[in-house]
Structures are given as structure tokens and as C-alpha cells.
Design a protein around this nucleic acid. Structure first.
Lengths: 332, 332
DNA sequence: ACTATGTTTGCACACGTGTGCAATAAGGAA
DNA sequence: TTCCTTATTGCACACGTGTGCAAACATAGT
């Protein structure tokens, strides 16, 4: 029952083409007619139909955003950045969550294809082997966040995980720590491996021998930090732990408190991400800062450039160390 | 360059109508032909065009979700619930953030109209006077979360803020507290008033005189808890504070720590929302639990019922008290 | 052989918009 | 007046899909 461009045309006594052009400020239409039609359309409450427009122009001005889970504080900051830039440029955002469930991933990609989105941004922890070819089939530019890849369609903006982890670990070494544990991230995420690499590289540079028994499993979530208990039994006992991310670190803090271990007096803890809550836990968390919303903005701008046919280069972002209370000089 | 239904039709030697019906499993088409066309479409990699379909069916199977900020932990849990149900029912989610900026709100509503979404869910802290009539103009069912309203188009699923606040305050009274402060929420949100009402009602029931100087401004975010300092100077000094929400409470904890006030030994703190982090701050937060993802799911199911032309009743959810470490018996 | 009935398919229109091209009108120059 | 140029508008098609209706065909009943 919505009023269409034809209704406006009839009311104005012109053809629908004239209305279409008038509303697009096309100079072909006489300035006077243009103004008259615009006023009339306004008064009639006419709203253009983006669906019909998309059908004929073959551009939807919509982008798909695929994330693992929107409830993840890292992800929601990224999405915030994306949405900000998108809406400024009058693009709409289709949100989809995969929850690392292959079935959902398939459905999501299918839906994005059906909707003929102009581009896609993926901020999912897992861009599996099954998944990547499917994404390419959509046939539109894709920007991956924290998943480095290269290709005709695939571009990325990513954290330098190796550098960040190295920075964090080197800091602990400079604080006098020699036995440093590490809690890993989710197994299927490439950044888990990269952060481990950075950790090892810092040890090597300081001529500290890598000890595999100082590295325990985790999953990137608070409950995943349970492995910290194993680290406490390691001999000699570690005096510092570098965690895959802040959620893991926060989980570790909670468990350590239950065991009566004081942070940072007995044990220093360092996280990764600098989620908003890192500043509010007690002790507040020393961590590596990722500019999450900024990464979202960069990804969206990159996608816009791609949509305008420009060449873009992948972006790699360096981590910055934020020192707070959860770390201290050894023995202090 | 995408292949269309006509391409499939040509390849199969039939008309596009036949293909359309075959893919819809329409029994009008001979079973054998149907199977043959489906196989062919599959092999050709045909993907139906949701845009074109939406144009002719006048249903998009897309809903708009308007939130204040996706980076808010309360909001992101709600959106998670919405998206979960939506994607199960093969609905797509358009995400838009308003940031309480009138200009953005106007643009958002306009965009949703243009996209002809089937329905809208609003989880924004502010559904202002300017805003509500605009929403109605979209002409589709709308479900508001935590904004009670009634009308032909407007429906709601909301927390019982009065009951929840009353529950929290009564708990503090039962713990022996008599001088209880309150930090307010954002001014333009109705739940700010409702939680204040619940706070006052509990006091009245316990025959404690309400003291306006025990109520200070806040804004629902951590920085907004700065008013807690004023409360410390109140005479007699309060022994407990009920905060508008968990973020405010967490902000208060942080400020109190800087001032050397021990929680809960010197002062009990109670929040509202039970965001995931409430359990991980130190001391962990006593709070009122809101089933956030469940509220999202309920809202989406309600919207689905409305889209199917069913009558629905507004939903009101009771808060549950979660006792953790930030509150204690007075003087203990 | 003719008619009635049922099954299967295609024709043609609709949805709302953008745009190339032709048509018309207006104005000026010869 | 006649012709040319320029400004303005409308015609008609396209985008990809769904669907009412008629057409074509097959089958069975008399």
C-alpha cells in the first residue's frame, strides 16, 4: 500500500521517468519542475524502494558482516567501527553470526549471495577450508579481519600477532621474569599460532630456552583458562603468564584468586586485546592494545575502495603495550 | 553476471515459470521434471535473487534491528538472541546503531522504510517523542525491548524494572543496611525512573524515610559512576549503594578502590543486568539478572507471530537476584 | 469418434525503479 | 517562412521473480 513513484507521477501530471530524474536532481529536468516534484514527493510521504532500485542498478548498497558471535566484546567493537563508516556512506549492514557452526556458515553465505550484497566483511575466528571457497563464490570483494589472506577477492586488515605477543613477552622478561607460562587460544585460529610464535621469539632473543610444558591449552574464553592450574604445578614455578587474550587472562585472574595466589605479587599476568573491561578488573590488566573499532573502520573503508574499483593494500596493525596493575617487577 | 532463472530455463528447455515452480517444489510440475530442473539448477550454481523475489512478493524476510550501541554488553547479548531465532527462521537482520543521535535515528528509520523490512526490533535506550511517530510510519510491526508501549504497531518485551530494583533494595535492607544510596541511569530512559521507583518502594515498605540527597546522577556507563564520591560525603555515610546497572557498579568499584574504600567490608554494592563480566570483576557483583539473550529471542518470536498475523501480548520479565561478593551483612 | 476430466506447461503481467533514445516544444538564425 | 539547435519530457525496455489463467496434451468414459 506504500505509494510509489508512479503515484507521484500521476499526482504531478508527468511520467514516472521525470519523477525519477527529478528526485535524483538530474539537470535534464527543468529546475522549476524538479523543485515542484520534490516538494510534492515530500508532501505525499514518498519513500523510494531500495529493493526495486537494487534490482535495476545491480547495486544494493548493502554489505554482509559475518562474525563468530556478536556477544564477544572484541567482535562487537569491530562491528561498531564497521557500522559507523557504513552508515556514514549510506550503506546498510547485514549481520550474521556463525558460532563456528559449519551449517550456519553455509546458510549465511547462501543468504548473502541471495541478497546480492555489494561486499562482505568477515570477522570470524575461523575461516576454514570449507568456508573460503564458498566466500569466493559470492563474487564480491571480501575483507577479512584478523585472518591474513591474499587474492583477487580476498583482502585483509589484521593485527600483527607475532609482534604483539613478542612485545608482551619481552616486557615480562625486562621485568626480570625468567619462567614465563603461556595459555593458548582456540585451536582453529591462526592467531593462536602467531601469538605462540611471538612468545617463543621473545624467549629466544633473551636466550631463554623454550619449555613446551609451560604452554597449556585454552580456548579464548574465560572458562578456558583452567589450564593455569597446571602451570602452578610446574617446577620451577612460573612467575609470569602471557595469555592468548584478555578473556583468558580474566578467567585466570578469577581462578588464581580462588587458589589464593596474589596478582601481581606472586604472579604477573599479561593479556591481549585490551577489551574495555581490561581496565576494570582488579587488578587491572596489563595487555596489548588492538584498535578494535579502528580496525572495523579501516576494513569498511577498504571495502568501499574496492567497491569503487580501486586497488588496495592489506593492512597490518602493530600492537601497543598497555601497562596496568596485573604485572610487576619480579620479586617486588 | 550471475546466472538467473531464465538461464536455467533455457538450459532445461522450459519456460522460466516452470523453473520457478519446480524450485519451489510446486506439485503442479511433474515430479520428474521437477527433479531434473532442481539438479540442473544445482549444477549450474543458480542462486535465487532475494531482491527480485522481494519486489514481487512484497515480503523481504528481512527485519531491522535498531540499537543504541552494539558495543554495549547488554545490547550485544540481546542482538545475539534476536539473530539466533531470526536466522533459524531464515530471516535476515539489518543492524543499525543510533548512538542517541537524532540525525542517525532519522536516517536509520528512513533506510528501513526504503528497504521495506518486514518488521523492526528496537533495543535503544531512548525512544523519544520525535522517534516514535517516525517508527509508526514504517507501517510494519515493531517490538520494543525495555520500552513499554502499547498500540496497533507497537509491542514490547520488557524487564520489570520496578520489581527488580525493589528486590535488590529489599535484599540490602534485609542485610541490615539502613542508609542506602542510589546512582541513577541515563536521564532519557524510562527504566531510570522505574528503578528509582522500585528503590523507593522498598524503602517505604521497610519504613525507611526516602532521602533525595542519597540519590545521585549517573549515565549507565562506568565513567558515570563518579557521583559515588558525593555519596561518601553524605552524613550519615551510606553502607550500601544500589546502582542503576552493572556498568555503573563496576565504575563505582573502580573509583572506590582508588579512594581506599573496601567492598563489601566498608560498603556494599549492588548492580543490575548481570552482564557476563559481573562475575569476573573483583569483588564479583551482586546484581539483578536479566535474561538478555532470552529477551532477544522472545522479541524475535513475538515479531514472527505478528508477521503471521497473530495477536500477541506484551511480555514482562521478572528480575532475579544473584548474590555475589560485592554485598555483605552490615557490619560484618 | 466425441466429450469430459485431469495433468502439465507456457503466456503475459506485475512488482518499482533507472535510463537510452526518440519525440516534442521552444527559440533563434537565415 | 523554413531550418537548425537546444531544452525538456515521455516511451519503452530492462532488472529477476511469482502467479492467474489459458492452452495443450493425455487419459478415460460413453
Amino acid at each position: 500500500m506504500k505509494i510509489s513513484i508512479k503515484d507521484v507521477a500521476r499526482a504531478a501530471g508527468v511520467s514516472h521517468s521525470t519523477v525519477s530524474r527529478a528526485l535524483a536532481d538530474n539537470p535534464l529536468i527543468a529546475a522549476e519542475t524538479r523543485a515542484r516534484i520534490q516538494r510534492l514527493a515530500q508532501k505525499m510521504g514518498y519513500t523510494p524502494n531500495a529493493i526495486a532500485r537494487g534490482l535495476v542498478t545491480q547495486r544494493t548498497r548493502a554489505i554482509g558482516v559475518i562474525v563468530t558471535s556478536i556477544a564477544d566484546p572484541f567482535v562487537s567493537e569491530v562491528v561498531r567501527g564497521i557500522e559507523e563508516v557504513a552508515s556514514d556512506q549510506h550503506y546498510r549492514v547485514f549481520l550474521g553470526t556463525s558460532h563456528n557452526d559449519p551449517q550456519r556458515e553455509v546458510n549465511l553465505v547462501k543468504a548473502l549471495r541471495e541478497w546480492r550484497v555489494d561486499g562482505v566483511i568477515v570477522a570470524a575466528s575461523r575461516v576454514g577450508s570449507l568456508y573460503k571457497p564458498m566466500l569466493k563464490e559470492i563474487g564480491v570483494p571480501i575483507v577479512l579481519i584478523n585472518n591474513q589472506h591474499q587474492g583477487a577477492f580476498l583482502h585483509s586488515v589484521a593485527m600483527n600477532d607475532v609482534q604483539g605477543a613478542q612485545l608482551a613477552t619481552r616486557f615480562l622478561i625486562e621485568q626480570g621474569h625468567r619462567v614465563i607460562g603461556h595459555i593458548l587460544g582456540p585451536q582453529d585460529h591462526s592467531s593462536t599460532l602467531n601469538r605462540l610464535t611471538g612468545y617463543r621469539r621473545a624467549l629466544t632473543q633473551a636466550k631463554i630456552k623454550f619449555d613446551a610444558s609451560l604452554v597449556v591449552q585454552g580456548n579464548g574464553r574465560a572458562e578456558g583458562a583452567i589450564g593455569v592450574i597446571d602451570l602452578l604445578e610446574h617446577m620451577p614455578r612460573p612467575t609470569a603468564i602471557f595469555c592468548y587474550n584478555d578473556m583468558t587472562a580474566i578467567g585466570a585472574l578469577s581462578i588464581l584468586k580462588q587458589h589464593g595466589i596474589r596478582v601481581p605479587a606472586d604472579l604477573s599476568i599479561v593479556g591481549f586485546d585490551d577489551i574495555p573491561f581490561a581496565a576494570y578488573v582488579d587488578p587491572s590488566l596489563t595487555t596489548i592494545h588492538q584498535p578494535k573499532d579502528e580496525m572495523g573502520r579501516i576494513a569498511m573503508k577498504m571495502l568501499l575502495n574496492l567497491l569503487n574499483g580501486q586497488k588496495v593494500d592489506n593492512v597490518i596493525i602493530e600492537g601497543k603495550l598497555i601497562v596496568r596493575e596485573s604485572s610487576a617487577q619480579r620479586g617486588s
